[in-house]
Amino acid sequence: MGKTENQKAWFFVLPVFVLVAFNALIPLMAVVNYSVQETFGNNVFFFEGLKWFEEVLHSDRFHASLLRQLAFTGTILAIEVPLGVAIALSMPRRGPWVSVCLVLMALPLLIPWNVVGAMWNIFALPDIGLLGRMLNGLGFNYNYTQQPFSAWATLIAMDVWHWTSLVVLLAYAGLSAIPDAYYQAAKIDGASSWAVLRHIQLPKMKRVLTIAILLRFMDSFNIYTEPFVLTGGGPGNTTTLLSIDLVKMALGQFDLGRAAAMSIVYFLIILLLSWIFYAAMTREEGRS
């Protein structure tokens, strides 16, 4: 039996092509286009080659933003992953409290990002905010609009509050998938709870934790809304992370060529680091 050949299939795939073209390919190519040209407005462009890329890669401003970004992402990963695992471990495995815990955990994830920023902005205000007022009352000299350290601490606390839940939910899913027989076998062996964590729970959670770390890495490296609402990159430039810097350059200074080149460099950095993370975390499985 021969199949009837016709071109109908294209008709069904077309919407996807159009969608991908408009929301990914065309904008990306526009950015590539800008990144190699100079414009002074009036739709007049001059080809500049790799000039913008060279400038971006050699600029102190970009280096500083990148360093801040790495420090931010590194810090929140170092806090959120162990904290998320710890919370997941202490959650009940069965019973009526399971759903209560899960809903409580999911709540921060449901709040729109700019609302999170606004909440913390007000919460941490030194004169009227609950947190800011309390900290100052306790004798800490805390003011996130003036002091870089306060700003960073607030930024990190906000991200930990907002996103640790994601790690918790993934880790909890991983834990729930471990059959009871593993715990029984460990109990029969007389294994300590540290041994259970080290030799059963962590290895069994490895896959979901890989995903959790990757997601948190990519999201935190792209973070824009919350720090923009909270500090707007200040005081000075001390909390100007890559995306905030990029927006300042593109929309604030209307420096399209440089901003486009920076976007592409930014994108490649995320791609490269994600790949390194993934390769490192799945190295052992590949070997076996």
């Binding site: 027989a181 593993y182 030799h199």
Partner: peptide
Amino acid sequence: YQQFINYPNL
């Protein structure tokens, strides 16, 4: 057990 229970990383 029915499931093959061993320490996965040892």
